[in-house]
């Protein structure tokens, strides 16, 4: 359960205060599939960073599963990111010198899981993603769609409750993008994971069950929608 209460995030840019988030109230229940839409600069990425505990609100409260995160220390926030939250980025952010399997293994290394358990999970994730025979390939030997699937594998391998995707199809062609979205939606449907997708692409945002529109740091519309008929 994600609960934001009059959250503000103010950046200082050249002595001027920019309100990237300006009083955001938002509640997202477990297992929801929501799309955050808006033009660039509307604050949708900042919202995702705050929800993902990469950024702290300047004001307001953010409760994650009932825990007030604004009072947590850096190490505790890192722990929540590790265990509760998975990130998928537009630029994939795979580590280039590591193989697909090693990239997926990374969060488990940081969590200190034993090697045997890590291998077991990596093998299963790679199989689920249809990348089993690509496990030894480095990112530059993979296609864009494959890279994003590896990134999703890395986000999922710790079994987080929340998956945050920032323009996950932004660097992909239509076909690969559709595959990635289908994969994310399957995780939401089958594993009950909370899926929050930030996008400015109406075709992507239109697939979600709930659509949140942002403008100038505020939520201007928040309504359920039918979702993509092809699902």
């Amino acid at each position: 359960m994600i609960e934001l209460e009059s959250v503000e995030r103010v950046f200082r840019v050249g002595g001027e205060a920019v309100r990237a988030l300006d009083g955001v109230d938002l509640t997202i229940a477990d297992g929801e599939y929501a799309a955050v839409m808006g033009p660039s600069g509307s604050g949708k990425s900042t919202l995702l960073h705050v929800v993902g505990l990469l950024d702290r609100p300047s004001r307001g409260r953010y409760r994650l599963d009932g825990v007030d995160t604004t009072t947590l220390g850096e190490a505790q926030r890192a722990r929540l990111r590790r265990e509760r939250i998975g990130f998928v980025f537009q630029a994939f952010h795979l580590i280039p010198r590591m193989t697909a399997a090693e990239n997926i293994e990374l969060p488990m290394i940081l969590a200190g899981l034993p090697p045997r358990e890590r291998r077991r999970r990596v093998t299963r994730v790679l199989r689920d993603l249809g990348l089993a025979e690509r496990c030894g390939h480095r990112p530059d030997q993979l296609s864009g769609g494959q890279r994003q699937r590896v990134a999703i594998g890395r986000a999922m391998v710790m079994h987080p409750g929340i998956l945050l995707a920032d323009e996950p199809t932004g660097n992909l062609d239509h076909r690969a993008g559709a595959q990635v979205m289908a994969l994310l939606e399957r995780l939401n449907r089958e594993e009950g994971i909370t899926l929050l997708v930030v996008t400015h692409d109406p075709a992507v945002g239109g697939r979600a069950e709930r659509r949140i529109d942002m403008l100038d740091g505020r939520i201007v519309a928040d309504r359920p929608q039918r979702g993509d008929p092809s699902r």
């Binding site: 890192a78 590790r82 952010h93 890395r154």
Partner: peptide, 16 residues
């Protein structure tokens, strides 16, 4: 820099 940001995003604490 980006790699360190990624490490933090997937749950690396400052001390790690």
């Amino acid at each position: 820099t980006a790699e360190i940001g990624l490490l933090k995003a997937v749950g690396a604490a400052d001390r790690q």
